[in-house]
Nucleic acid binder design. Structure first.
Lengths: 129, 129
DNA sequence: CTACACTCTGTAGCGGCTACAGGCTCAAGA
DNA sequence: TCTTGAGCCTGTAGCCGCTACAGAGTGTAG
């Protein structure tokens, strides 16, 4: 299976697949001639990566998850810890964005209410403290 | 006023200030000897940039805002349009993050409920479609 | 046999910084 | 006066997660 087919099946860009190989997230597949020759397990692994990205994990975290995934025993606790940490970061970022959203929405809502076409947004950005 | 003092006053990293100059967001200040010599208006401008960043604007958008800020006339409408566009992007990103947060929280909540220490997070990432 | 789609490697760019290395300058203290 | 050391200078490279080339090679269908 050539890289184009893998790209189709996984939704990952061809360049991205090669990038993942370069950084060691995917093993270099065997070659048929000079072309990379992928098997179904590569497709699975790539889909795993992709879904990990969709959940906002970094490539490094995904690498860890990929290492943990086939293990037995304490796997779930370790993964859970990782996921919970990620969730905390996510929530922190979310809280920041919500603050920004609120502040900006408030400013924009005041646009057009000032005399002389004065702009509340600019006013906020330019004011002294 | 030397760059260190500006850094203190604005909370911007020294390297960042020089970076802003390099990309043309801040004008190159005059020199006293070989040292950059800033005035109060530079501090104002930098604070403007910083607050713009805190509202999530890109440096390019901030450049536009800085150009618009001292104008009269149609300023507010233009700024408002920019800010509204930014707000839309922000809300889209927020919606994405909330989806991720919900999905991940749901998965993590199921950790430890599976037999054989099987992990719901890994299960989600590895499952076929 | 030719045309053409696909793949290859290697490199550089994006945004928004941050982190050096290696040198220069300036003011205060001995 | 001389030295020390904090601060500044330039230039370059790195971070993440791709993406976009250039320029070459390969494989297959007509």
């Amino acid at each position: 299976m050539k890289i184009g087919a893998v790209s189709e099946l996984t939704g990952c860009n061809i360049e991205t697949i090669r990038y993942y190989e370069r950084i060691g997230l995917l093993a270099a597949p065997p070659r048929r001639g000079s072309y990379r020759d992928y098997g179904p397990s590569d497709v699975d692994r790539l889909r795993f990566v992709r879904r990990g990205r969709e959940l906002g994990f970094s490539l490094e975290e995904i690498g860890t998850l990929l290492d943990l995934a086939p293990q037995d025993g304490a796997t779930c606790e370790t993964v859970q810890t990782l996921a919970e940490q990620h969730l905390r970061n996510l929530r922190a970022k979310l809280a920041d964005l919500i603050k920004i959203e609120t502040a900006l929405a408030h400013l924009v809502a005041q646009c057009g209410t000032r005399p002389n076409n004065y702009c509340p947004v600019v006013e906020f950005l330019a004011r002294e403290f």
